[in-house]
């Protein structure tokens, strides 16, 4: 499902203009990373997608729905939202009940709820602990549980706010695998993250925000190559990109494999000269 933002501005009651004239189209099935320093407007922007905030000006369309005509609870059928802190939502006695809470709110049948719960818990690797208490899990696993709860909503669009924060390498790997699976299933994925290596590795497209405006956007490779623009937005490219730039290599390698390939070619060319 696609998502369109047309001429959107948002001003908080305090008077702060958090978004200023945003136009954006996210095609169905895309994996988009939204970057920017704190206060750039990233979270404000994504909160418009599920109606937690309403634009002061402009329109947000979720597929063919004008978000202004639907409540947040109704938009929850189309947009799933993973919050930064999992503890802001967990309250049930078991993992299975926690994951099933959203689908029940949407009126799914008990059989459907069970199916979604089993599938979501399996996807995040917590299916063996379905009857455990959520607070018996360590915090990184509670984040995976919150992600399972979001996945079980079965929405075509998923917004993930800092999905890798607080995760060790194992957790990061699990989230990487889950995102790849969801992307393969055709979900539209939008993630906010300061984890540049993770974004560079997974996002197809990037959008960098600065002072409530879109500062630069494009394919991941294209955006990561725009050093000056990224500097202005206080966004540091991943280590690999910076290393390639320091070596004055052509191209923008986003993964270790890319880097190794490009480095070999570059060395070969240099030697042949």
């Amino acid at each position: 499902m696609n998502l369109r933002v047309e001429g959107v501005s948002f001003r908080y009651p305090s008077g702060v203009l958090a978004l200023d004239g945003i136009d954006l189209a996210i095609p169905s099935g895309q994996l988009l990373a939204i970057l920017g320093e704190n206060g750039a407007g990233k979270t404000t922007l994504v909160k418009l997608f599920n109606g937690l905030l309403r634009p002061s000006q402009g329109k947000v369309y979720i597929g063919d729905w004008d978000s202004a005509e639907h409540t947040t609870a109704a938009l929850a059928r189309r947009v799933g939202f993973l919050f930064q802190n999992p503890d802001d939502q967990l309250f049930e006695r078991t993992l299975a009940r926690e994951v099933g809470y959203g689908p029940r709110n949407l009126g799914a049948s008990e059989a459907e709820v069970k199916r979604r719960v089993a599938r979501a818990l399996k996807l995040v690797g917590l299916h063996d602990m379905a009857e455990a208490h959520p607070y018996d899990l360590p915090q990184p696993q509670r984040k995976l549980l919150a992600l399972a709860a979001t996945i079980a909503m079965d929405t075509p669009i998923l917004v993930l706010d800092e999905p890798t924060i607080g995760q060790d390498e194992v957790g990061r790997g699990a989230i990487s695998r889950i995102l790849t699976d969801l992307h393969r299933m055709g979900r539209t994925l939008i993630m906010i993250s300061h984890d540049m290596d993770f974004c560079a590795e997974h996002a197809q497209r990037m959008l960098v925000m600065l002072n409530g405006k879109i500062h630069v956007e494009g394919t991941t490779e294209d955006v990561m190559g725009q050093t000056k623009k990224l500097d202005e937005a206080e966004v540091a490219p991943p280590q690999l990109v910076r290393l390639a730039q320091a070596l004055k290599m052509p191209g923008t390698p986003l993964t270790v494999d890319d880097f190794v390939d490009e480095y070999k070619q570059w060395r070969k060319k240099k030697k042949s000269k």
Binding site: L52, T71, A73, A76, V79, Q89, Y101, G102, L106
Partner: peptide
């Protein structure tokens, strides 16, 4: 916000 995003109607 988090519970509304999970379909909880206020």
């Amino acid at each position: 916000d988090a519970q509304q995003a999970r379909g909880l109607e206020l």
